[in-house]
Design a protein around this nucleic acid. Structure first.
Lengths: 206, 206
DNA sequence: GTCTATACATCGATAGAC
DNA sequence: GTCTATCGATGTATAGAC
């Protein structure tokens, strides 16, 4: 793959992420992507073949950061550290990859019609890992006997909402766009609800 | 307005809610709505004029239950009762109006391009009412000093996720569709996180 | 590898008969 | 008030010159 090809593909993916995020798959015109990328429309087709293939490429480009967000959950043994880090990491995704998050949210909302099966499998695998870790902590009396899956749903939604429903949130807060302090307050509140609400304890020997 | 007109409009709105929810505005074909409604396509146009106007009608039909969900918050004076009732009421919307919720979520996610200004104003007004009530409770030491807006965002997202991201949740739980017990567990967990997490107290004199 | 000009398909919308 | 048949706009995709 030539350098020029790599460069152009990156430019196109970046522009496409944004347009797909703002309008959804069906409503985005390839012409709008071309315009934002400052490239003629046929180039999009030269590099990606079709609108559908480009969309899939965008989805795939987004998977890595999404999966990487659970790193704290895996790395830290201590329940308080792990959950605090996970919430922070999830919020960080909403802050730094707002378009990616939205494209993904849209896809999931409509039943993942374009998501490749291997990505679905990876996400399912991750869900199993996270919920079994929670169940382990519960069994060891390191947190209250809550439903592991539903706790995950709550954490996912409460953190992703800052990307997905950005419009509603800025509207309610009466500001043009979210600032660092907003994300800090969100982290503080969500962490509190999880740690205090579910009575999560630190490891005794740490 | 004739009885036949009222009847047909209702049939069309119902079918349209579902199709718009499943595919989003741009991806839904008026032919698909006509088919689901078991009516010829021109009838859709006879009754609603355009796809856009029909979509607005769907949005408006959905506002009433959404606004009504905050009734417990207003009625109950006791913070624990009010918040518990609000969470239950919000989850009930996700359970009983899944299509409506999704259409709304989609609209909000893309910056509410079709939402009439008066509806936006009503929602903003409701947000102000809810957050000032929370702030009042905080001032009276009936709950921890948390950020009122962010608590609302957390409750909204954690309850709406059961409608909006239904696919992800059924996938994770390994079932075809959500059952009553799933909503009960969700209510239990979210209520716990809010009440215990934010140290919400009952009124002393109740 | 790049881009202008255009073919072709897909709907949203309506004319006009009943 | 209902519906068949069809128009026309929009937007995906490509042919073919450079």
């Amino acid at each position: 793959m030539s350098r020029i090809r790599a460069k152009n593909e990156e430019i196109i993916i970046k522009a496409a992420s944004r347009v797909f995020a703002e309008h959804g798959y069906a409503a985005t015109k390839t012409a709008a992507i071309a315009e934002l990328a400052q490239l003629p429309k046929p180039n999009i087709y030269y590099y990606f073949g079709s609108k559908e293939k480009l969309y899939r490429a965008v989805l795939e480009s987004v998977v890595e950061p999404l999966l990487a967000a659970s790193a704290p959950f895996i790395e830290y043994q201590d329940p308080v550290e792990a959950l605090t880090g996970y919430i922070k990491s999830k919020l960080s995704i909403s802050k730094h990859y707002p378009y990616a998050s939205k494209v993904f949210a849209n896809e999931i909302m409509h039943g993942a019609p374009h998501l490749p099966a291997d990505i679905i499998a990876q996400l399912a695998e991750q869900t199993r890992t996270l919920s079994s870790k929670l169940k382990d902590w519960i069994a060891r009396d390191l947190m209250a006997d809550i439903d592991a899956h539903h706790l995950l749903f709550a954490i996912w939604s409460a953190t992703q909402t800052y990307a997905d429903f950005n419009w509603q949130i800025t509207q309610a807060l009466g500001k043009e766009e979210l600032e660092d302090t907003d994300f800090e307050r969100a982290a503080e509140l969500i962490t509190r609800m999880v740690i205090t609400g579910c009575a999560v304890k630190s490891l005794p020997n740490s």
